[in-house]
């Protein structure tokens, strides 16, 4: 019974979420419910406020209206690392890896919050240190294995090809042991082969970890293929919400992307 409940109760929920920068309302009244194992998409034209939503959901910005609720706990006003500790992890639109560190260390660094040994254990190399380090190493290597990065474990992160850097970023986000994964344009700048690999990779992650995923993406074929629910925003406002077919035929969405018939609208979209 409780298992069923957990499946249905949303993991991440926002209620009337919004933020204003001075007089500009970047995001208004944003509502989303993400259940366990669900894959949702967030789309919208450039500058619509998608990344701002992500920043609100990860504590980079503090919302001026509404709230972010993770499993019943209101996260407003917490810092990014506390959001991560609560269970929200993300990747970035422009890849942000620890470039000078090895691939393995990138993943290990994300385990930091779960490593229990203290300063004394680290400085004097007590058995607790060796045990914790061995565990972390095993867990990190397992994660890299999933993403076929294990052979490159000792290479500097910056030396990986683009597609693998994206994967490493996802692996690093997974290392934080999250419940909700936010992917900010994971397929940006990828060729079709890399995108196909990525789709496979995301499906695998979802199956294996049973987490909720919210992704921002411009590649419509990817969004339509992967996402069960899609939210469309434009000028910070939610203009549509529903399944892929609904969204693809929604006139407001089409207008937002292609512009309405009069010329003015076209200009402001560009």
């Amino acid at each position: 019974m409780s298992e069923v409940n957990r499946e249905q109760a949303p993991v991440l929920e926002t209620r009337g979420l919004g933020i204003s920068f001075g007089g500009l309302k970047a995001v208004q009244d944003f509502n989303i419910k993400l259940c366990r194992g669900q894959l949702a998409g967030l789309i919208g034209p450039n500058g619509a406020g998608k990344t701002t939503v992500f920043n609100l959901l990860t504590g980079v910005y503090e919302p001026t209206e509404g709230s972010v609720i993770l499993e019943g706990e209101v996260l407003n006003g917490k810092k990014t690392h506390q959001f991560v500790a609560a269970g929200v992890a993300r990747t970035f639109q422009n890849i942000r890896l620890f470039r000078q560190m090895s691939v393995l260390d990138n993943v290990k660094a994300a385990f930091s919050k779960d490593i229990k040994y203290g300063m004394a254990a680290a400085l004097f190399r007590t058995p607790a240190y060796w045990k914790a380090e061995a565990e972390v190493e095993a867990k990190a290597l397992d994660l890299l294995e999933i993403f076929h990065l294990r052979e490159k474990a000792d290479a500097p992160a910056a030396s990986l090809p683009y597609g693998q850097q994206r994967k490493l970023e996802i692996a690093r986000a997974l290392a934080t042991d999250m419940k909700v994964l936010l992917l900010d344009e994971p397929a940006a700048g990828m060729n079709p082969t890399e995108t196909a690999e990525l789709v496979e990779c995301i499906s695998l992650v979802r199956e294996r970890f049973g987490i909720a995923i919210l992704l921002i993406e411009h590649d419509m074929s990817l969004v339509m293929k992967l996402c069960e629910r899609i939210t469309v925003i434009d000028y910070g406002q939610t203009i549509a919400e529903g399944g892929p077919e609904e969204i693809a035929t929604n006139p407001r969405v089409i207008a937002a992307y292609l512009g309405e018939n009069d010329g003015e609208e076209d200009e402001s979209l560009a």
């Binding site: 810092k79 991560v84 992890a89 942000r96 470039r99």
Partner: peptide, 13 residues
């Protein structure tokens, strides 16, 4: 050092 924003997004205080 490498990326402070990414570090905090990886759960590092």
């Amino acid at each position: 050092r490498d990326d402070e924003i990414a570090a905090s997004a990886s759960g590092i205080n």
